[in-house]
Amino acid sequence: MNSVILHTATRLLMSLILMFSVYIMFRGHNEPGGGFIGGLIAASAIVLYSAAFGATWARQALRVPSMSIAGCGLFFAAISGVFSAFAGSPFLTGLWWIPHLNIEVHLALSTPLLFDIGVYLVVIGAIVTIALEMEEAED
């Protein structure tokens, strides 16, 4: 769509939406949010970009095939269950690692977090693939 207002607003909004999506994803462990809804928000940013500049430019901005993003997410999600092998526990057992960083805030890293990041990426990849295909089918 050839509109100066949309182009300018998209550049501004896209980074905000993407940051918000990451925030929602991390928030999801203890509060409403999570990988699925975060992924939907991030996908909406890319769909907005393709509405403003066209699907070709959206694909270029992604740099990798959108299905590969989904593949990366699926890999993270599957591999997050494998870490428990090192702890001698069954598949998908949640493991936590809280490094001491000499700061006030605790950083809690865990395999459920990795799983959630995987979900986030799968949702982005799948939704963006569908949306861009439909956008191109219209042309």
Partner: peptide, 24 residues
């Protein structure tokens, strides 16, 4: 033995993920 039980699920899902990564 423990891990062989999830083998029929884990190996194909990892293969599918790697194939998606090698999309092009």
């Amino acid at each position: 033995m423990n891990w062989l039980l999830v083998w029929p699920i884990l190996i194909p899902v990892l293969t599918a993920a790697l194939c998606l990564l090698a999309w092009n």
